[in-house]
Write a protein that binds this DNA or RNA. Structure first.
Length: 244
DNA sequence: AAGTCTTGCAACCGCCTTTCC
DNA sequence: GGGAAAGGCGGTTGCAAGACT
């Protein structure tokens, strides 16, 4: 945004900055991000504050490895929606568009490594990179399911892709020429929509609130899981048939 | 052991859309 | 109605850490 002042602090957020931002949101709610610096003294742009909140501090965010179910949903929805990361994120409770985008780029986009522009750029970068660098970033915080703040380091494990191998080997024609995908969701909806990882009420609300194909928000009336489950599948059908 | 490469992810950038005055 | 500000989104980059040679 050209209107934002120059001289905003950039780079990793400190624990203190996170605290100030959390306090601001608890007092004023989400939105009015450009006011954060005024109210808190935080020298961060509104966009930076919003991003930090949405991608890291917001209660209910899951951290750590994507589950095989989540990976499968991403693969399936990307086949239908393309790079609509924020839309895909609506189907994955506690996951952010940024997280999904990063996952995709790492695991799917760069399959053709030999021609990866990023790889080439990175090789170039590493040639120029000074050997041992910089200050350690502060310990990362996150909120657990009970909305408590933690400072734990996240354990990283090698992903297990065996569960989704069959998805990634599906021929494109199967996506584009029939209702394969829609039927797949219909037949496996218990796996997706009924999985423990997706039982967060927020997901069902967000699924029900998914925009329809004309860009209008769906009714936000609360439904029980079974009802919403059907609606989620209906939404998927809408997306599938209109996007293709 | 040291150098190089790969991966994961936080954060920034620029553009577009929406909202406000 | 039009311009400015704010918000949202997708693409990209920078860096740490682990894997590999």
């Amino acid at each position: 945004m050209g209107s934002e002042k120059l001289g905003w602090k950039k780079g990793p957020w400190s624990v203190e900055e996170d605290k100030l931002l959390c306090e601001y949101v608890s007092l004023h709610g989400e939105g009015r991000w450009s006011s954060v610096s005024k109210f808190t003294g935080l020298n961060r742009s509104g966009k930076s504050c919003r991003l930090r909140w949405v991608n890291y501090l917001k209660p209910g965010l899951k951290k750590g490895q994507l589950t095989p179910q989540e990976q499968a949903i991403i693969v399936e929805l990307h086949a239908v929606l393309g790079n609509k990361w924020s839309t895909i994120a609506k189907y994955l409770a506690g996951r952010t568009d940024n997280e999904i985008k990063n996952y995709w780029r790492t695991h799917h986009k760069n399959k053709d490594r030999s021609s990866s522009s990023r790889r080439n750029k990175r090789q170039d970068y590493h040639k120029r990179r000074p050997k041992k660098l910089q200050l350690q970033p502060p310990p990362q915080q996150y909120h657990d399911d009970d909305n408590n703040v933690n400072n734990n380091n996240i354990n990283h494990h090698e992903p297990n892709f065996s569960d989704i191998t069959n998805f990634t080997t599906i021929e494109d024609d199967q996506y584009y020429n029939n209702d394969y995908l829609a039927n797949y969701f219909m037949n496996n909806q218990e796996q997706y929509w009924g999985s423990a990882a997706l039982e967060d009420e927020g997901l069902w609300i967000s699924l029900w609130n998914l925009e329809d194909t004309e860009g209008h928000a769906r009714c936000g009336t609360m439904h029980n899981q079974h009802t919403t489950n059907s609606n989620a599948t209906s939404s998927f059908h809408d997306i599938y048939h209109h996007v293709r």
